[in-house]
Computed example of a mutant assay.
Amino acid sequence: MLFEIICNEFRQQRIEFHSGLNTVLGTKTGNNSIGKSSFLMIVDFVFGGNTYAHATDIIRHVGHHDICFSFIFEQEQFWFVRNTLDHQNVWKCNNTYEKEEELAVDKYCTWLNEKYKLELPYLSFRDAVGRYIRVYGKENLNEKQPLHTVINEKSQKASYALLKLFELYMPIHNLEKQHNISKEAVDTFRKAQKHHFVASVTKRQVDYNTKEIELLTMEIEQIAVGLEKGFADLDAELSDEAIRIKQLLSRARRQRSSINAKLKVVEENLSYRFSIATDDFNQLKKFFPNANLAALSEVEKFHSEISSVFSTELQTEKRRLQKEIADITLVISEYELKLENLIQNPKLSKTILSRHADLQRQIRVLKEQNDAYSKFAQLKQAEKEDSELLLLAHSVQK
């Protein structure tokens, strides 16, 4: 409790308080301007207020001065000094009011809050004490606004301070917190739509999307009718993979056909035989009597020898091409197996796969748009409900 206030400028320099109610009385004749209001402002000054330090009439006539005061908490006394000029600080003192430690007013008020054991959620010491010290010279004298600490304070803030004092504020605080969360969620969603991170659609668009999804789903089911069971469940990602393997398979088959064509040419060259036919030469002599048959025989012999050399090289080329065909055939078999395992239909055309993947993508986009609309509607409904609860709490409070 506040125990004493001392000031050398007082007519009665030391004023001691006792536990319970303390009353400031004027004279029996009811004279004014004897210092009652000034003394109450000094009490407010002791409790961290600033009005007394800005009382120009007092400062002009008295000058800046020290206010000494002490508190007793749990039988322990604490001494302080605060000056009207340096009113942003409070000095902690010894028992003869010699200054020892400087404290900022905020820190000093925190200390008072702890000693008076207020420490109420979201309520400062000044908000708990200062607004209820109503004295001439402060801005809280309007009898029509008994809770306001200043003239232009919002009524909601003033009433909240009273609720905090009686520990009735937390339900409203929780409602406000929830409303702020839901409002922020709606605002964030709107920004995401503005920057095209989330689809922005109307109710009419949602209705159209729903019908379109039904039509696209029916088309997928119709595709599945002509194929093996299970293709209707093939998603877009698997369709893309099937298309990719189909392309690789087609490329490998074309490569194998090209190698087969080369092998056929090599085999035809290997099957060709050079031979010396005397009868043919005799027939030739009938038309060309002067032909040199011996020279022709030498040429034919040379061709036969060359053929023997080429045959070795062609056999090597044939073996190389056959190995390539075997390798590419193995690759083709692997692709066919992968495709079969993937879609259970190795004869599925690229056109069907592409159409299926496209249908799946269209459905996914439409569903994402509808989901965005539903999510936004849920957020707005949550904000509306939270706002209504908060308004209801405010009306009950009033």
Rank of each mutant, 00 (worst) to 15 (best):
E153L: 10
M41N: 10
E114H: 15
Y97A: 06
V396D: 04
I6C: 11
E16C: 13
D371N: 15
L249M: 08
E184I: 02
Q322I: 00
G30V: 02
H196N: 15
H148Y: 11
F231Y: 10
T210F: 07
S33Q: 04
I15D: 01
R82F: 03
L263S: 05
E340R: 13
G226K: 10
T217Y: 06
I72C: 03
D127F: 07
T351S: 14
P121E: 07
G26Q: 05
H65P: 01
I245K: 07
E317A: 10
I6H: 12
F310C: 02
F231M: 14
E184A: 15
E388S: 13
A185G: 00
R273G: 01
K211E: 11
N152F: 10
A252R: 05
K157A: 13
K285N: 08
M218Q: 14
K36A: 04
R361V: 01
L163K: 10
F376L: 14
V266F: 05
V62C: 12
L163V: 00
I332M: 13
Q378V: 12
C7M: 11
S38Y: 03
A261Y: 09
Q247P: 00
V331F: 04
V81Q: 09
E383C: 10
L85G: 07
K157T: 05
Y116S: 04
Y108F: 14
K191D: 08
Y160G: 03
V43Q: 01
H54D: 07
Q362G: 01
I34Q: 03
S307M: 02
E313G: 03
Q77T: 08
F71G: 02
H173S: 10
Y136T: 12
I325V: 07
L348Y: 08
V43R: 05
Y97V: 02
K367T: 07
K191G: 02
N180T: 04
F45L: 09
I67H: 07
P121S: 11
H179T: 01
T329H: 05
L123C: 06
L162G: 01
V225W: 03
F73A: 05
L238W: 00
L359R: 08
K264V: 02
I133N: 06
Q362M: 03
E100Y: 07
F302M: 14
K286H: 12
L103M: 14
L366S: 02
E4S: 14
V90G: 01
F73I: 08
K92R: 09
Q381W: 02
A252K: 08
F288C: 13
F10A: 13
E102W: 02
L2H: 01
L270P: 02
R126M: 12
H61A: 12
K164H: 05
L314M: 09
S349M: 04
E143L: 15
K246M: 07
I363Y: 03
V150R: 14
E317R: 14
L359C: 07
Y373H: 15
K177L: 09
Q156L: 15
P171R: 13
K144A: 12
F274C: 09
N22E: 02
V62A: 11
L389P: 00
I6Y: 10
L314I: 00
H61I: 03
C68Q: 13
I363T: 00
A192Y: 02
F166R: 04
H54M: 12
R251A: 15
F3C: 10
D44S: 15
